[in-house]
Design a protein around this nucleic acid. Sequence first.
DNA 1: AACCCTTTGTAGCACAGGCTACATGTCGAA
DNA 2: TTCGACATGTAGCCTGTGCTACAAAGGGTT
Lengths: 137, 137
Amino acid sequence: MSSSPEKLNVHERVRRQHASELAQDYVEAIYIALEEGRNLRVADLQEIFGVSHVTVIRTLRRIEEQGLLANAKSGELALSPEGRKLAKLSADRHDLLVRFFRALGVSEAQADADAEGAEHHLSEETLGAIRRFLEKS
Amino acid sequence: MSSSPEKLNVHERVRRQHASELAQDYVEAIYIALEEGRNLRVADLQEIFGVSHVTVIRTLRRIEEQGLLANAKSGELALSPEGRKLAKLSADRHDLLVRFFRALGVSEAQADADAEGAEHHLSEETLGAIRRFLEKS
DNA sequence: AACCCTTTGTAGCACAGGCTACATGTCGAA
DNA sequence: TTCGACATGTAGCCTGTGCTACAAAGGGTT
């Protein structure tokens, strides 16, 4: 996880990004649900991600080991401070990209789908450029 | 590969994209080298992707099984027509994204790196919007 | 109490994509 | 021609992320 920059080549960087995508997507989903006052369970995540409940359980265990979950009342999911921070970052990036694609004329649904795929692969530099672009337009 | 649209949910679509990324990256690398008159070998790909030569060999075998490689003289890599088509598509998308990020004010190196990560995750709709944006500016 | 449904959990498998260690092949120089 | 270097290939392992099949736990209905 999150260790040093180390000068990776381009492809190594992309691999690194992939490795943390799932965790981000999970905490993001949990975060959004909590924001909306809903309480996610395994079955919900199964639905959201289109995988079996078994896969959800195991992935949750992994992100718990990464310290992103807080142990809430049994059956309920809660985020640790780091989890919440990561989720907020992800959600903000996602929103930014959706607004950006919308500004370029992309439909709502497609903007959302593409943001989901692309949000893990843009540097702070590029995100900054996108923010500036949105401010100007 | 490339089978039916089937109405995947957002995350299923992203997973699908990941599954074809490596193949695209490999044929793209081979394609570009051939364009420039160089002849890639395993050792070059190992360098480019930052993995061991064993990983390169196995990945090549897989993309060969997918019909993307043509059997060239031993020790040399060549693309099948489908491989070439896929490579060209990838390379074009990559270039488009680099130009786009550059137009937004992103540095050359970062534009290239981010394009590498993002190029597999944008829909035709969004790519079209980007093309239109670049024409206007 | 017995039953069913839903939810969650466990066992165990497959495949992709990493790796190291070892084996072979080829080629230029001594 | 033998040796050493480099390229390529094989064997076998690990982890992540998917799956199905089965097990257990809980709640509602009859």
